[in-house]
């Protein structure tokens, strides 16, 4: 009986181990997404809105999935350094300036994972490596 319990325990433990291995990327994604949501609320939501809707013709929305996926490697620079000048989103021109966020690269990865997978966007995980690579290309 004791043997059986030990085997069962071992099997369960192995099962958990394998399962967690398989979904480690999933877990990383969820961790980024959840953390990113909080960062979004404190650093982005005032301007870009609860649902990424932006504000009239003053602040661009984050719901243009085409724009987000096409420019996914530029987003880290926008978040880190802010943005100035005219930007074309969803066929509309927005003029103004976005202030630098003051977020660290890992925080940028989290917030981009959140934005990139909310409001209709589906970019998947944007991790620290990716962000660090993108930040080197900032103009």
């Amino acid at each position: 009986m004791k043997k059986l319990a030990a085997i069962a325990f071992l099997l369960t433990a192995m099962g958990c181990f394998i399962l967690s291995c398989q979904s480690s990327e999933d877990i990383e994604f969820k961790r980024h997404y959840a953390g990113g949501m909080l960062l979004y609320q404190t650093h982005c939501q005032n301007c870009h809105g609860k649902n990424g809707e932006g504000l009239s013709a003053l602040i661009p929305p984050l719901t243009d999935t085409n724009y987000i996926s096409k420019n996914r490697h530029k987003l880290a620079c926008f978040v880190q350094n802010g943005a100035n000048g005219i930007i074309n989103v969803s066929g509309k021109f927005y003029e103004g300036s976005m202030p630098p966020s003051g977020l660290s690269p890992i925080e940028i990865a989290k917030v981009l994972t959140y934005v990139g997978n909310s409001f209709g966007n589906k970019t998947g995980l944007i991790n620290l490596n990716q962000v660090q690579k993108d930040l080197k290309e900032c103009k």
Binding site: L55, S56, S97
Partner: peptide, 15 residues
């Protein structure tokens, strides 16, 4: 108008 913090959300609501 150049307010980076609470003004956008104020005027989203004022709309």
């Amino acid at each position: 108008t150049s307010c980076p913090s609470i003004c956008p959300i104020m005027h989203r609501n004022m709309l």
